[in-house]
């Protein structure tokens, strides 16, 4: 099949960017979307044009590296997959595909399609964990966890931290990302002990990073490659609703 790509090119964080058009001729519909970019890049390099920079690593939808808007949709048109798991058979021969980086102020562009998502790390750093030191843990089966709770925790824990939820949200909100962690740990007895301060600290960190708020568009859920449900946001809101602790108490 033949495809035309319109790709955002930007040399560095401080340089202005623009769209460039590249043709991909006679590519197999069995290629993954990133393999399409590989093929285009090989062609660019042989023409002496610097290849398109994009984050990618595991190429099986779990590391969360790959991140691009494809025809205006985070990770493209297929539901519940990351860009690396998107295959060309979902596109039409002769189609023009627009590829852009995540667009959100807390994710500054570094080059082409590569953005800085370290804001997510700082949110986890603020409280996305259970404070147990190595070697302090009790016997694993000493606390039974209802299967349903463990399953719901796992549903939320499946988040790969790619940032599609932010990119898809008209407010660039990170609510689904934060809520996924809050719900993962908050559903388990091991995470309950710090549940209150966790949600406070993580939401504060999210606000500090400049992410917007949730106004119930649910675009995040549609874009999420792991299909994490906005019920997690409801869970987080419930956890957050109670009076906040005063500093030092």
């Amino acid at each position: 099949m033949n495809l035309s790509l319109v790709v955002w090119r930007q040399k560095g964080a401080q340089t202005p960017g623009r769209f460039e058009r590249y043709e991909a001729k006679d590519v197999s519909p069995d290629l993954s979307f990133l393999e399409l970019l590989d093929v285009v890049n090989e062609g660019l390099i042989t023409q002496g044009i610097e290849p398109i920079a994009f984050d990618h690593d595991c190429r099986e939808g779990i590391c969360g590296s790959c991140a691009m808007m494809i025809n205006g949709l985070a990770h493209g048109p297929q539901p519940a997959v990351a860009t690396c798991q998107l295959y060309l058979r979902h596109f039409k021969d002769g189609e023009t595909i627009t590829i852009e980086p995540w667009r959100a102020k807390p994710f500054p562009i570094l080059r082409d399609l590569v953005v800085d998502r370290s804001a997510f790390d700082r949110i986890i750093q603020a409280g996305g964990y259970v404070s147990v030191n190595t070697g302090e843990a009790p016997e694993a089966n000493s606390i039974p966890v209802p299967k349903k709770d463990a399953d719901m925790a796992m549903d939320a824990a499946a988040c790969i931290g790619c940032g599609a939820c932010v990119a898809a949200c008209p407010n660039a909100s990170a609510m689904l990302f934060v809520a996924a962690k809050v719900a993962h740990l908050g559903r388990l007895p091991q995470g309950r002990v710090e549940a209150k301060q966790r949600v406070d600290q993580m939401v504060d960190a999210m606000d500090r990073e400049g992410f917007g708020n949730c106004t119930n568009h649910y675009e995040c859920m549609d874009a999420c490659p792991k299909a994490i449900h906005v019920k997690a946001i409801a869970f987080m809101n419930r956890e957050y609703r109670f009076p906040r602790r005063k500093p030092g108490t």
Binding site: Y129, V130, V132, T134, G135, E136, A137, P138, E139, A140, N141, I143, P144, V145, P146, K147, A150, A153, M154, A157, H184, L185, L188, Q190, G191
Partner: peptide, 23 residues
Amino acid sequence: SNAIIDQCVAQGVPFAREYDGYL
């Protein structure tokens, strides 16, 4: 090996469980 499982469960790793709540 056994201490690893203890540690991970304490961290909130959502291992698969049976209906009785055990791992």
